[in-house]
């Protein structure tokens, strides 16, 4: 990037500090080509999901005989009845629990990780390399399932609590490091000038870094949310006697229970014929039920993927 180009940018800034213009457009041919490519990919991604949705609204026997439908052939709500039906209280409970876990967890996690990322991004932080290694090391090395279990149940006594579903997932080194990379791109001059004005690190973090790192925060925030929403392992392992559970866990167990009906070793009596027990369709309905809310939440995060926010506070 030539130095005079940079000067020219600064010269072009309007008095309000906003930068005019942006990237240049594509030629017409390229635009068509671009959209064709993007559309093909979109079809490849969309069709399987349509199959999932259609299958979930089909009857099990139709799926067994004719394979997966792209558009519903034999409409049936059997799978959803199985999911919601008798255990309607459980699925709502699971939803509530998962929303709570995800909400609290995402907030805590994003907060903690972004703060840590900011600290790591500060090149003059004298413990920088140590802290980076401290955090990064845990990405690779783990004491193992049993020692973690011992520590969580015998020392912290977190089993059967809400927090066991949240706390172990709060720190994700990968996310911290990505956020750090995003924050490193922010001009230090801004921070410097704020410090000169007497601002504390917290203030700088809140008023300068966070707004400027919005795309990165939105991206990682989304990832964190998805992680909590889809989590099930902690609930499986640590909840024995209380009611806490996550949606994904409940769905997995439901599927297992259905499969158990097929197991020769068990003697479950059921009124349905074996072929009619929703199994394929149930599996698909589970995907819809779990993924649905996330897809609705998606656009909320997309809102923050906005292009280069103002850094016009630096003059000259």
């Amino acid at each position: 990037m030539s130095a005079d180009a940079v000067t020219r940018i600064k010269a072009k800034r309007t008095s309000s500090g906003r930068v005019a213009g942006g990237k240049q457009g594509l030629s017409r041919g390229s635009t068509i080509g671009l959209h064709v490519g993007l559309t093909i990919l979109a079809i490849l991604c969309l069709i399987p999901m349509l199959v999932v949705i259609s299958t979930s609204f089909s009857s099990e026997s139709d799926v067994k005989e004719n394979g997966y439908p792209i558009i519903v052939r034999d409409f049936s709500l059997d799978a959803y009845e199985q999911l919601i039906g008798r255990s309607s209280r459980t699925i709502i409970d699971a939803y509530v629990d998962t929303v709570m876990v995800s909400g609290v967890g995402t907030f805590l996690s994003l907060f903690a990780c972004s703060m840590a990322a900011y600290v790591l991004a500060r090149r003059n932080f004298f413990l920088r390399t140590h802290l980076t290694f401290f955090i990064f090391f845990t990405m690779l090395f783990n004491g193992g399932l049993v020692p973690t279990y011992i520590v969580i149940t015998q020392i912290y006594s977190l089993q059967d609590t809400f927090w066991v579903l949240v706390l172990p997932l709060v720190v994700v080194p990968w996310y911290i490091l990505i956020l750090r990379t995003f924050m490193q791109g922010i001009s230090y001059e801004l921070i410097e000038s704020a410090k000169i004005d007497g601002a504390s690190e917290f203030r700088i973090f809140g008023t300068i870094i966070l707004p400027l790192a919005k795309p990165g925060l939105a991206c990682i925030g989304l990832f964190i949310l998805l992680r909590y929403w889809n989590s099930w392992f902690e609930a499986m392992l640590y909840i024995n006697r209380s009611d806490w559970q996550t949606l994904q866990l409940m769905l997995i167990r439901m599927q297992q229970r259905v499969e158990a009906m097929f197991d020769e070793n068990s003697l479950i009596q059921t009124n349905l014929r074996i072929v009619d027990i929703p199994s394929e369709t149930l599996r698909m309905a589970m995907v819809v039920v779990a993924a649905g809310p996330m897809l609705i939440v998606f656009p909320f995060f997309q809102k923050y993927f906005v292009r280069g926010l103002t850094i016009g506070s630096v003059k000259g």
């Binding site: 942006g22 791109g185 400027l212 795309p215 292009r307 280069g308």
Partner: peptide, 14 residues
């Protein structure tokens, strides 16, 4: 994509 969003549009201008 988030990374691309974080690029100052001024560079493209220049």
């Amino acid at each position: 994509y988030a990374g691309l969003m974080a690029i100052d549009p001024g560079f493209y201008e220049a």
